[in-house]
Nucleic acid binder design. Sequence first.
RNA 1: GCGCCCUUAGCUCAGUUGGUAGAGCAGCUCAUUUACACUGAGAAGGUCGGGGGUUCAAGUCCCUCAGGGCGCACCA
Length: 726
Amino acid sequence: MDAKFLKPYDPAATEPKIYEKWLADGFFKPETCVEKGVTAAGAPVFSMVEPPPNVTGTLHIGHASMLVIEDIIARYKRMRGFRTLWLPGTDHAAIATQSKVETEIYKEEGKRRQDLGREELLKRVNEFARQSHDTIVDQMKKMGASLDWSREAYTLDEKRSAAVFEAFKRMYDDGLIYQGHRIVNWDPKGQTTISDDEIIYTEEKTKFYYFKYGPFVIGTARPETKFGDKYVVMHPDDARYATYKDGQKIDLEWINGPITATIVKDPSIDMAFGTGVMTITPWHSAVDFDIAERHKLDKEQVIDKYGKLLPIAGEFAGMKIAEARPKIVEKLRAKGLVDKEEDYTHNIATAERTGGIIEPQIMNQWFVDVNKKIAARGGRSLKELMLEVVPEGPMHIDFIPDRFAKVYVNWISNLRDWCISRQIWFGHRIPVWYKGTGATAEKRVSATSPGEGWTQDEDTLDTWFSSGLWTFSTLGWPDKTPDLETYHPTNVLETGYDIIFFWVARMILMSTYLLGQKPFKTVYLHGLVRDAKGQKMSKSLGNIIDPLDMVKKYGTDAVRMSLIVGTGPGNDTKMSEDKIRAYKNFANKLWNIARFVLTAAEGEKVEKDFAAYAPDDEKIRKERHALMVEITKEMDEFKFYLVAEKLYAYAWHEFADIILESSKDILKNGTDEQKKSRKQLLLHTLEKILRALHPFAPFVTEEIWSDMPVPDKRPLIVESWPIMAP
RNA sequence: GCGCCCUUAGCUCAGUUGGUAGAGCAGCUCAUUUACACUGAGAAGGUCGGGGGUUCAAGUCCCUCAGGGCGCACCA
């Protein structure tokens, strides 16, 4: 027995060495496994892409949990004999990364992006992204991730940019991408549009005002938008206002003097809300915009890009909303136009990345049309294509847990055209070029400048446009590569349920449209990692657990086990340092089990098909086999938490506490035959435990494995799962 | 407003075709130089959120109420 077993297990000394060995052997790469004869050339394929972490700094516990689940899947499949590809990468995360760098620059140098200019800012962001990338890759390796680094991708690298251009061009040519004046979510702080999903609603206690508007009383929480309101809308069936006719003009006194208002009757009005009458602000409200479109009404801008009032506000022009609001109410009160005010809880929309308060604005932006029929796809729209992956659809994808399929369908049915242009600089620049103005203006889609006098669109693409291509852009698309042929559709996508809409849905959109394939056969959704009390981890609560700190303190295997046990799909996980400590103890327990077994069975080798078991040993062997059958089924059902727990209980409380203890007497007082049988039993059982536990705790199992007297053994990472065909 | 999830031992949670309630942690009692103190043995601890129904049988299926969490929509 190796002298290392005389000391407690030392993860810090062991783990880096083992990861290096795996890398050197090349077993993360499916081709190498075939070349070295550890995977059959004709073996079935298993592929999975890693959801690319954003290059915004470092890995957090959520990433760690994702990597652990995926690594367990990858290692399990590899041990089951699949040609297993798990493909790594990182995401440039346009807005998230740029705003992070901008914030830092402003803090340190007091400069804004306009002070630096496009080129200089991009230089800085790219440099930051590169550093983040290096840190993150290093951290992924520390988690033990068996990712095929030879295929590493980045959403903004050359190949992925080519894929983005191709996708854009095809969608443009099919008329799916169009430019138009539509109402969008404008972030005055980030100075860019954002998508509906990037909005965070927070409750705010505010006032709800009732103003006298001629003969009516209108309600509003936003007095500052009311300057341009010259349409007063009511339901056509509202008996209270039956005397007013559609299109009727009314002169009335308003904030900055007398105006002429027009009556509009529209059935979208909720008669029970407020007074059943409202004025509309089409430029700054999606609902009002729709009403204005239906009745072909004028639209006027009231608030500018910076959240300041425009000259239409008269004496309030130039003021910020927060400043102007009370002053406007004061003025209306002085004029006797305030009917009453009430306390009100209002959901305010803020930008996820910058915290800016979203102001709907009508702007000229680029959109993806989700309802247009696509000739090349049998006359179906993107929306229709996206619905084909539901359980009863022709291209069905398994959702785990399946309740998320409903969430997905619900989202699709509410889907509106996707605004894909962003007014930031970091990202894929829109590949559209312009030349000339007015009647002679030209517009062309091109990856590079079409020539003299052409200027490129200033905007960049929503970051989810490039990540939507991830399952196939990483495999070489648009080229028809062997990788694409072999590994797409991927088998499993493992990600958080919080990005079903952002990402899962968009991958389905892109893949069904561009390839006519689903991007993955199964989507496994994990939950959030919370603290021991179930609270979200956040800087302000001071309850953040840094996975790398924990790795340093307790070892990767302990962190991995603690992230898995108690984690059902779709449910949030609770984490605590105590839990991690408990699994460090487990790694050491395994270590001591190995020490005992290797000492007790000194000189003995694992004999394949050893049949001469004593009756007691045969019983133990059968129970062990039953457990292996059970956990194999559970692995296939993605119930990793159960498997980890059962192996933990079996290794510790069955094998160590009962089997090892009972062996002491047998090995001392038994017959030679009994001793032999028991030694084989101990070796076989430890061997099976190591194999089964390897996906969960790869380092300590690999390290013990190196001392196991198993003839013709390979590194554990490419050994077989304890039972091959359950 | 629409929808989803949760409620089982002090805490965290298993309990997947309905068949006499389980684990880990914490706490309690005891052991103590052992493969391992990063340990072992033992006992204790629950009217499975309330009510109703289906059934020979319900933690499990159905209805209903309550509490907690979340998503979407609305937000004049």
